[in-house]
Design a protein around this nucleic acid. Structure first.
Length: 503
RNA sequence: GCGGGAGUAGCUCAGCUGGUAGAGCGGCAGCCUUCCAAGCUGCAGGUCGCGGGUUCGAACCUCGUCUCCCGCUCCA
């Protein structure tokens, strides 16, 4: 902060990373072995926060909506799944670098552009021949041949203007593993690059077993894996990450309305959790994915800029149709509702899909970035006045890892025992800690650092009238209340209901 | 993948022209008994990211490598 040339933003992410490690939220994976790039572990505080966020999302989806049900599909899926979804073709890019400009290109794109050039120059036959040759080489996985083709065609880097190319390398963004223990020729089994396909292939199982009527949704939380070429920004882009997805199946023709509907609903969720409206925005996709009819990101302003946290996509019937064709199993729904125009039921159709997909780790990161705050506080009056800074994690009480800490004011006179009794009487309701070591100020501070919303002090008066002081994390103010009121008071504050009511 | 920066105790960092590692904070144990990181005593914790090389001697010089940060690039 004292260095004006250093971007304040990067310092801020560093603070978050350091805080996350120091207080047990996020550790780098296998740190003692120098870590594994772009993989992270959640510590004691992190797992609580993440679980709370996941549970909040889960209940928002499945409990608040009578027509959304859950699913937990396996990470491994039949290899054909990824042929149907387009990932085998699309997640597999031949890349080539120009050694002078240091720019990286997709080899196939370079060649396709060259082919288009021939076509525009009035020689479509030559363009078509080039495309065909490229297709042949790529099919045979002849990467050296692809490079030779680039050289033969004298393709130059648009930036450096040279033809100084590296070798062509295949980057497969899907991780794979051996599917069969005995047959080494068996096709590889992929670790799913998205959770959505587990929902699509189970569409009819869920619809029939849960007797769902369109429109309805299937929600799922689970791990997905992508071998990112460049993974950066802490837990923002990881190779192993967790998605919270809900695929909403609708009657064709109604998808636009549902798209708008979920768009606003999902943004409201993030605001209800405490992300300020000014740091959230919609970002419409200009370039749509192969499956998408419309797509928008909900972006949060991370310390490194506005970045995608959640995507809402109108996926049409692309996925179900693809699976229907490849599996040769009908993926249709019979709609008994009467079409007012024809007076007859809508009948059989492949439903359209509106998808909402949040990165659980990104929501976690946004929550942490938003909550971490250093404030300047002034204490005392007149001559005795002094200022100091305090670091506090202003987490929404509903997602805070620890709901309340119980402190005996001193470690004698029966106060520790009284505190323990209090702990025992509330442990079935809330995640609590008791601490009797160190000064009470130290203990308050420690709880501020992990975002505990309440600290309950047991003092000598407690022994006389069964009242305690409740100190609030955000204001640092204390209120005295009877022990008998604690359960209701804390319960109200940390309840998911307070979030749900804002949705 | 390219360019730049960084890596020393749990954290923040110091460590001079090479001479075998320090502070503050934190942690743990005890004393004290106290409402916003109090005081006292004691303790634990580092083959200086890792591996070579130069040197009588390397945290420091050199080469390689790994990881992180920033910028490009990429991102259905």
């Amino acid at each position: 902060m004292s260095n004006p040339t250093a971007p304040a933003d990067s310092a801020q992410l560093k603070d978050v990373v350091a805080h996350a490690k120091e207080y047990g939220f996020v550790f780098q994976s296998s740190e003692i072995y120098d870590g594994l790039a772009a993989v992270y572990d959640y510590g004691p505080m992190g797992v609580e926060l993440k679980n709370n966020l996941k549970r909040l999302w889960w209940e928002t989806m499945t409990q608040l909506h009578g027509n959304v049900v859950g699913l937990d599909a396996a990470i491994f899926m039949a290899p054909q799944t990824w042929v149907a979804s387009g990932h085998v073709a699309g997640f597999n890019d031949p890349l080539v670098d120009n050694l002078d400009s240091k720019k990286r290109y997709r080899a196939d794109v370079l060649l396709e552009e060259k082919a288009a050039e021939y076509e525009n120059a009035g020689d479509p036959a030559r363009g078509a021949a080039l495309t065909a040759e490229m297709g042949r080489l790529l099919t045979n996985n002849d990467l050296a041949g692809v490079r030779q083709l680039i050289l033969d065609e004298k393709i130059k880097c648009p930036v450096s203007g040279t033809g100084n190319w590296t070798e062509v390398r295949q980057f497969n963004l899907m991780f794979s593993t051996q599917g069969s223990a005995v047959d080494s020729d068996a096709p590889p089994v992929y670790l799913r690059p998205e959770t959505a396909q587990g929902i699509f292939v189970n569409f009819l199982n869920v619809q029939k077993s849960a007797r769902m009527k369109i429109p309805f949704g299937i929600a799922q939380i689970g791990k997905a894996f992508r071998n990112e070429i460049v993974a950066r920004q802490f837990i923002f882009r990881m190779r192993e990450f967790e998605q919270m997805e809900m695929q909403f199946f609708v009657r064709p023709g109604t998808e636009d309305a549902w798209y708008q509907n979920w768009k606003t609903a999902r943004r409201r969720f993030h605001e209800a959790l405490g992300l300020p409206a000014a740091k959230l925005r919609f970002h419409d996709h200009d370039k749509l994915a192969h499956y998408a009819k419309a797509a928008v990101d909900i972006e949060y302003e991370f310390p490194f800029g506005f970045k995608e946290m959640e995507g809402i996509h109108s996926r049409s019937d692309f996925d179900l149709t693809q699976h229907q064709e490849l599996s040769r199993k009908k993926q249709q729904y019979f709609d008994n509702d009467v079409n007012p125009e024809t007076g007859k039921p809508y009948g059989n159709y492949v439903p359209y899909v509106v998808e909402t997909s949040v990165g659980a780790d990104r929501l976690f990161l946004a929550t942490l970035c938003q909550a971490l705050e250093t404030e300047i506080i002034t204490e005392g009056e007149g001559e005795e006045q002094k200022t100091k800074t305090r670091t506090v994690l202003r987490l929404h009480p509903a997602v805070a890892p620890v709901k309340a800490a119980i402190f005996p004011l001193v470690r004698k006179d029966g106060l520790p025992e009284k505190a323990q009794q209090l702990f025992d009487s509330l442990r079935f309701d809330f995640r609590l800690v008791v601490e009797e070591r160190d000064s009470i100020g130290t203990r308050y501070t420690r709880q501020d650092l992990i975002g505990t919303p309440f600290c309950i002090a047991v003092d000598h008066q407690t022994l006389e009238d069964d009242t305690v002081t409740v100190r609030h994390r955000d204001s640092r103010l204390q209120t005295r209340m009877p022990i008998s009121e604690l359960r209701g008071y804390i319960g109200e504050a940390v309840s998911f209901k307070r979030v749900f009511e804002l949705l």
